[in-house]
Design a protein around this nucleic acid. Structure first.
Length: 377
DNA sequence: ATGTAC
């Protein structure tokens, strides 16, 4: 852990290798830390530049909170399902052909699905059960290695079964919520107990639920397409603001691309061509604002990846990874933007958090099929 | 990251 600033506000970087962190990302972290009411800003080892603030960061404020630090994909997160498919009966290519249509509206009753999550129908039902773009995906995985059998078993996990990991968010709903805020307040915050704060938090909490319902429906569509059933193991949002009590104060904990580490085990995917880690947070999580890295984090910005890789990689070569997995991504631009080479090495991200005393490993998972998108945008 | 506008 590297201390950037000892007080007013506290700024900590949870890496053992500062050169892992881009200068722009650190600058964004420091800039965001200057906002009024800021007490603590922490950067995770996957810290990288973002839109309204850095991604891979958590911020603690008093008396005011900042929607632009959460970003537009309110509720975005990771969900893990255990399926009834067995590791000894993998039919990778046959299964890949069965996976399609996760970018078009679900054939079922989306309004009824939302009711199961205590949500009323909104104007975004057509997007429910769709993965979206960018770094979102749904991925079939096998268990690679178990390092903490007790924690692994306590989640009901079985190494013989295949898993589905879903990374998606609140689609247009979250975007509309941030737009509504920034149209009036820009990058300004919302003070405690104001009407605008109450309205934002109500919409925010609904988007958190909507995103969870969305991941569940994506998993349902994915698992059904493979002709089997599955059970949710865990689901955590890495874009959210929460009210917390700490040292007798009521504070706001903002997470942007930062997984919560106060709700049990956490799933941290690497790239589509690397392992996913299941980890167990260790006891005291206050220094890191009860937050962990949410993935590998970008190394190269989206716009620069194609130029860097086009001479060495064809779209067909990027559709198979070094791990032997398939990537279903029929949007060529996205296939390059999301290439594993554009991301940091997840093993180093995990090692950083172990070295900082934040986590222990529980298990790793190996990708088999990653579904991103079938159609061109 | 998004739906929409360019």
């Amino acid at each position: 852990m590297i201390i950037i600033s000892k007080e007013n506000p506290v700024i900590r970087l949870f890496t053992e290798h500062k050169n892992r962190i881009e200068g722009d990302a650190l600058h964004q972290l420091k800039k965001s830390a200057e906002l009024p009411g800021m007490q603590t800003a922490v950067g995770m080892p996957d810290l990288h530049p973002g839109n309204g603030g850095p991604v891979g960061a958590a911020f603690i404020t008093h008396g005011i909170f900042y929607p632009h630090l959460i970003g537009s994909d309110v509720g975005c997160g990771m969900g893990l399902w255990q399926t009834n498919l067995r590791k000894n009966k993998v039919k990778r290519d046959k299964w890949a052909r069965k996976l399609s249509g996760f970018e078009t509206p679900w054939e079922g009753d989306a309004g009824e699905w939302l009711t199961g999550y205590n949500l009323n129908p909104s104007q975004f039902e057509n997007a429910l059960g769709t993965i979206g773009g960018g770094n979102h995906f749904a991925e079939l995985q096998t268990v690679e290695k178990i390092s903490d059998p007790e924690a692994f078993g306590a989640l009901g996990l079985d190494k013989k079964h295949l898993m589905v990991l879903v990374h998606s968010g609140s689609r247009g709903l979250g975007a509309s919520i941030l737009r509504h805020h920034t149209d009036k307040h820009g990058a300004g915050g919302l003070e405690d107990n104001t009407d605008d704060a109450t309205d934002y938090l109500k919409a925010h909490d609904e988007a958190i639920q909507w995103a969870e319902a969305n991941r569940a429906l994506i998993a349902h569509r994915f698992i059904s397409a493979l002709g089997t059933i599955g059970e949710r193991v865990l689901d955590l949002s890495h874009n959210a603001v929460s009210r917390i009590q700490h040292d007798g104060q009521t504070l706001w904990l903002h997470r942007k691309g930062a997984a919560p580490s106060d709700r049990g085990p956490v799933i941290i995917p690497g790239t589509r061509g690397s392992l996913t880690y299941l980890v167990r947070p260790l006891k005291d999580q206050s220094a890191n604002a009860w937050s962990l890295a949410h993935g590998a984090g970008r190394k190269w910005n989206r716009g620069s990846v194609r130029a860097r890789l086009k001479s060495r990689y064809t779209p067909a070569s990027l559709s198979q990874t070094d791990m032997g997995s398939l990537v279903i991504c029929e949007d060529r631009d996205l296939l390059y933007e999301e290439a594993p080479q554009a991301y940091k090495n997840i093993d180093g991200i995990i090692r950083d958090m172990e070295a900082s005393g934040l986590i222990r490993q529980v298990a790793t998972f190996r990708p088999l099929i990653t579904y991103k998108v079938r159609k061109n945008r």
